[in-house]
Design a protein around this nucleic acid. Sequence first.
DNA 1: CTTTCTTTGACCTTTACTGACTTTAGTATA
DNA 2: TATACTAAAGTCAGTAAAGGTCAAAGAAAG
Lengths: 149, 149
Amino acid sequence: MLTDQIAKLIEQMLEESGGALDLQRNEMAQSLGCVPSQISYVITSRFTPERGYLIESRRGGGGRIRIIRKQMHKNEYLMHFFHAIGNKIEEREALAYLKNLADNDIITEREAIIVSNALSTAALSPVTPEGRGVLRAQIFKHVLLSLMQ
Amino acid sequence: MLTDQIAKLIEQMLEESGGALDLQRNEMAQSLGCVPSQISYVITSRFTPERGYLIESRRGGGGRIRIIRKQMHKNEYLMHFFHAIGNKIEEREALAYLKNLADNDIITEREAIIVSNALSTAALSPVTPEGRGVLRAQIFKHVLLSLMQ
DNA sequence: CTTTCTTTGACCTTTACTGACTTTAGTATA
DNA sequence: TATACTAAAGTCAGTAAAGGTCAAAGAAAG
């Protein structure tokens, strides 16, 4: 899938540049053989604040899109997500949060796997779809709390 | 029976791929001459967590269904607990199990804390008291499965 | 005969992708 | 300086391509 390729490319560029990079939308689209809005799509769907990225951009001649992977400290992270969760949360959002926590060494990979399974739709299947999001948020928050000192 | 054929095919594919495979529902349905929902039926009725399988999926263009087989025999200890849990479980029982798992270094102290919080009555408060035990069992089982190789 | 399992199809939700149109910033020109 | 031109990126609605869900009909088992 195109989206995955582009996301992978951007991640790789971020890795090489140490967490912040500038790219040009048209240029990248051309070199990948896709329409420019595809780049926008990838950025808005994959490099979200939830996953720990900041986006800045500038239009006009010589425009650019800047992608920054932001770093925080442990409790800050935990608090950030605690608040971000809100009243209910979908599985894919929760996964994004967990990946972010693991990537930043707030939790281990194994812990991320454990929690993601605890929050999975499959695990919460006894509850109605409407209730699930609320329950997932509740559980996730309790887990995050247990990780704060 | 169609279901058995499909199940056999998937098992065979799992064998060849070494325990984890991606398939496309529509594609497989077409090549077998059945409706796509038949594939879903086989997966939900045969490749359940109880039998040691984990399912993930993604929709949209180029979507997929991922089936992962856990090797039960390598996880006798975890399987023991898996079966002991039954259909529902009280919080204090779950805590006892977790302590046991931690004491035997199957999980870390921290992991035990995380899971105990996820299974706590507080975390599961959106659910009725009757439903809680069932849900707790379901979540616990999924967590145990995720710990198996 | 009843219950449980299988099969189907209609309808729903999510995700990917595109293109036309809008907005913004820099550059050249009157 | 004010104005037009050009080269970006932003937006958003529409289309298509998946998988999910569920109820109902049919088949098999007990």
